[in-house]
């Protein structure tokens, strides 16, 4: 009889510990849910891209192979994954691609705007030309609103692909975009010619047309 209260309190403590463990698992699962949601939400606007290479573009287009442009915010950490994936694509298709990385540079940008490690990383990728996109003029011409957005044109200037090359925000690994680019470069066809773009917005406010296009352009479904 004397041991009963101790046993009851021990049972209660054990039950509380189990309830606490279940609540803890739920809270942590909720936290991961928020993180997954953030990482899997594409940037507004993404990459719209005109069907033909814009006539007013100052970027040189290759006439004997495909040209790929990757638009990047020089301080967007998520774009590090896009650059890593660009390096993987080029390691495989360096003989079929001419690649350029255009770093968005706002008007009246501070002198050190482009001096981060992303510029250095992009410049280190073999076969890549790094370009400063002053005032985001080229991003606007190619209608790319999200860092990490890629456009791919063939040698005649026809759009082959527009979209991102990562599976999630700042997440390295295989993705829709890479798979489709690889298919386009090897077989000339792919199930879709776009993919969602994950990254920071290039402009403070994306142009209205691109924002509208971005909301309907997840490019994930087949």
């Amino acid at each position: 009889m004397e041991r009963a209260p101790a046993s009851d309190s021990s049972r209660l403590a054990s039950r509380l510990a189990r309830i606490g463990a279940a609540a803890w698992l739920l809270a942590v699962a909720g936290g991961f849910g928020v993180l997954w949601k953030y990482k899997s939400t594409p940037g507004a606007g993404g990459a719209v891209a005109p069907g033909r290479w814009p006539a007013g573009s100052a970027v040189a287009r290759s006439t004997d192979r495909a040209t790929m442009l990757l638009f990047a915010h020089p301080r967007c950490i998520c774009t590090r994954a896009s650059l890593a994936e660009l390096a993987r694509i080029l390691a495989r298709f360096h003989d079929r691609l001419d690649a350029r990385v255009l770093f968005w540079t706002p008007r009246e940008a501070p002198a050190d705007w482009n001096t981060g490690d992303l510029w250095t990383s992009a410049a280190r990728i073999p076969g890549v030309t790094v370009v400063r996109d002053a005032g985001g003029a080229e991003a606007s011409r190619f209608e790319v609103a999200t860092s990490g957005g890629v456009v791919l044109y063939d040698a005649r200037g026809h759009l082959l692909f527009k979209g991102g090359i990562t599976a999630a925000r700042g997440h390295e690994g295989d993705s829709f975009g890479q798979e489709r680019i690889a298919s386009l470069l090897t077989t000339g066809a792919a199930d879709r010619a776009d993919a969602p773009v994950f990254g920071c917005a290039l402009e403070d406010e994306p142009p209205a047309r691109m924002a509208r296009a971005g909301t309907s352009n997840r490019g994930g479904e087949r």
Partner: peptide, 14 residues
């Protein structure tokens, strides 16, 4: 990944 960016505006990264 200290900051997330939207154009010139930076916020603490998620």
């Amino acid at each position: 990944s200290p900051y997330g960016w939207q154009g010139k505006v930076k916020t603490v990264h998620m």
